[in-house]
C-alpha cells in the first residue's frame, strides 16, 4: 500500500490481547504469519497499547475501564488505526461492543475477529488453507465469540474447507458450555474453574474424538491445563497445518485419533 493510500485509509492493527502476548507467544506468531501470508499490511503496537479492559470491566472496575478505553482510543488514533483484527474473543467483544457503549460516537474503528478475517481471506483465495486427511476434531465455542458475539459459523466453515471432520458436542453454539476460565473465575475461584473445565472436557470425550480446538487463547490454555486424554489445540495451529493426525490403533475404540504437533 502506498503511503498516500495509507494516509487516507488508515492502518490495520493486529491486536493480540494481553493473554496471547504474555501466555501464548506461539499463538501470536501463528496469527501474524497468517496475516503476512495473506499479504495484509498491518501494524502491531506491542507495549504501546494497553489491556482492552475486559478483566477490568468483568471485575467491576468501571472507572478504570473507561480510562483504558479512552487511553486506547488516543493511542489507536495517534497511529491512524482504522481497523483492528484480533484473535482474542474477549478483546473482540470489548473493543467492538463495550467501547462503542462507553465512548459513543468517538469510537469509529472497525473491529473484526480473526475467524471472520480468515474465512473471507480463504474464500477470496488470499490465503491457502492446508488440507487434512483423516482428522476429526470437536469444537469448543468460546463464550465471548459465540453467545456474546454470535460468531458460530465462521470457524466451522473453515474446518470444513480444511477437510477436517467436525464432531459436535451435545452442548454447542447457543447451548455451549463454558470452559470455566473467564469472568475472573480462573483467578478468583480456581478450583471451581478447573472443575468446570474438566466437565467440559468430559463432554468433549463423549464425542469419541480426542482433539478439541478453539479460537480463544483463554479457553485453549485453561482447557489444556485441565486436560487428560483430550488434546487441546488452538485454532491457528490448524490454519497453519501444524497438526498431523496419527492413527492410533492401540486405543480401545480403534477409531480414536491422536495428533502431534509438527
Amino acid at each position: 500500500m502506498s503511503l498516500l493510500n495509507k494516509l487516507f485509509s488508515g492502518n490495520i492493527l493486529y491486536y493480540p490481547g494481553c493473554l496471547t502476548k504474555f501466555a501464548g507467544k506461539s499463538i501470536e506468531e501463528n496469527y501474524k504469519k497468517i496475516l503476512n501470508d495473506a499479504g495484509v499490511d498491518f501494524i502491531v503496537l506491542a507495549d504501546l497499547e494497553k489491556c482492552c479492559g475486559s478483566p477490568v470491566l468483568n471485575a467491576g472496575f468501571f472507572d478504570d475501564f473507561k480510562k483504558l478505553a479512552e487511553d486506547n482510543l488516543k493511542i489507536f488514533k495517534s497511529h491512524s488505526v482504522k481497523k483492528i483484527i484480533t484473535n482474542c474473543p474477549s478483546c473482540y467483544k470489548v473493543l467492538k461492543k463495550d467501547y462503542s457503549g462507553i465512548l459513543g460516537g468517538s469510537w469509529d474503528i472497525e473491529v473484526i475477529h480473526f475467524m471472520e478475517f480468515a474465512l473471507s481471506a480463504a474464500e477470496s483465495g488470499k490465503i491457502r488453507l492446508p488440507k487434512y486427511e483423516n482428522l476429526t476434531v470437536t469444537f469448543h465455542d468460546p463464550c465471548h465469540l459465540g453467545k456474546k458475539s454470535g460468531i458460530y459459523e465462521q470457524p466451522r466453515k473453515l474446518l470444513k474447507m480444511m477437510g477436517i471432520e467436525l464432531k459436535e458436542m451435545n452442548l454447542s453454539k447457543t447451548d455451549s458450555f463454558c470452559c470455566g476460565g473467564g469472568g475472573g473465575l480462573q483467578t478468583n475461584k480456581t478450583e471451581l474453574a478447573n472443575e468446570v473445565a474438566k466437565e467440559r472436557l468430559k463432554q468433549a470425550e463423549e464425542t469419541g474424538v480426542l482433539v478439541l480446538t478453539s479460537p480463544c487463547p483463554l479457553c485453549t490454555l485453561h482447557l489444556q491445563r485441565n486436560s487428560g486424554r483430550i488434546q487441546v489445540c488452538e485454532f491457528s495451529e490448524l490454519l497453519l497445518g501444524k497438526i498431523k493426525a496419527i492413527n492410533n490403533n492401540d486405543t480401545a475404540a480403534g477409531q480414536m485419533q491422536a495428533v502431534k504437533r509438527l
Binding site: N58, C143, K147, G183, G184, L185, N188
Partner: peptide
C-alpha cells in the same frame, strides 16, 4: 457473585 464466569448462558 464472583463464582460466576460471566458466560451468558
Amino acid at each position: 457473585n464472583y463464582s460466576c464466569s460471566l458466560c451468558s448462558s
